[in-house]
């Protein structure tokens, strides 16, 4: 059985993944901002078979707390095997273009808070010489587009940070998994019209579990996004800049 820390535990993808972890009888430590929602999730996961569920209310942009968070989590579960980072927001691109304050806030939530947490996690796992760091990035981080480049910047930075971390922790036997979902039908994307490319959170959750078990490094979810992004990445910049994407 594994001891698993989930950040942003009330996000839809995190819930779907936590349910699969719970049904396998793992120990869970959940972090989110809203204590009422954490309670609902916690009883749900206990009922579904989690060996134990611990919760902590924390705003992840409070990076001074990260070092202590890892310590508390390790104490509570007497160890830590997997960290899944799933918190985030979908910034309003046009609002961000008008305001650096808003842009900074979004970068803080979707990027800096993650980098700070990963700094503490990486040191812990490097010392333990074992463990898994899994972070939900996004296909949006693969290439900047006018409709979504603040989010893309945050996710792109996370992906590159993870790349470096993977290189650094390779010798310490630590799995560093970058998860890049495409369109997922969650409350975060409720304003978007849904089409055939949209996936259910449960599908993404199964992909995450599979990628962790198979010791993958980077995974696109669902799988076909690897090919969509391959095409998008290969469009020459002088053409790409003219596209309305």
């Amino acid at each position: 059985m594994s001891k698993i820390l989930i950040i942003g535990a009330t996000s839809t993808i995190a819930i779907a993944t936590a349910r699969l972890f719970a049904s396998e009888g793992n120990d869970l430590y959940l972090v989110a901002r809203n204590s009422e929602k954490l309670d609902i999730i916690s009883t749900d996961l206990k009922t579904r078979g989690a060996a134990s569920v611990h919760t902590k209310v924390l705003d992840m942009t409070d990076s001074e707390q990260h070092e202590d968070l890892i310590k508390e989590c390790v104490d509570a579960m007497t160890g830590l095997d997997i960290v899944l980072v799933a918190h985030g927001t979908l910034p309003d691109q046009s609002d961000c273009q008008q305001s650096w304050d808003k842009t900074y806030k979004e970068l803080d939530t979707n990027c800096l808070s993650i980098l700070s947490l990963l700094t503490s996690c990486a040191n812990y796992f490097e010392h333990e010489r074992n463990g898994t760091i899994a972070v939900i990035s996004s296909v949006a981080g693969d290439r900047g587009r006018q409709s979504n480049y603040i989010y893309g910047t945050a996710k792109g930075a996370v992906s590159i940070f993870m790349q470096g971390l993977r290189n650094r922790l390779h010798d310490s036997n630590v799995q560093v998994l970058t998860i890049k979902p495409g369109f997922v039908d969650t409350p975060m994307t409720k304003e978007f019209p849904k089409g055939p490319l949209w996936a259910k959170p449960e599908t993404i959750a199964q992909g995450i579990i599979r990628a962790i078990k198979k010791k993958k490094e980077v995974v696109y979810l669902p799988w076909f996004w690897r090919f969509i992004m391959l095409v998008i990445m290969h469009i020459p910049e002088f053409i790409f800049k003219k596209l309305k994407l």
Binding site: I40, I41, T43, D44, T47, R48
Partner: peptide, 10 residues
């Protein structure tokens, strides 16, 4: 109400 999909106790 499909999203109200949490178990409470068994």
């Amino acid at each position: 109400a499909r999203g109200l999909d949490h178990f409470i106790h068994f």
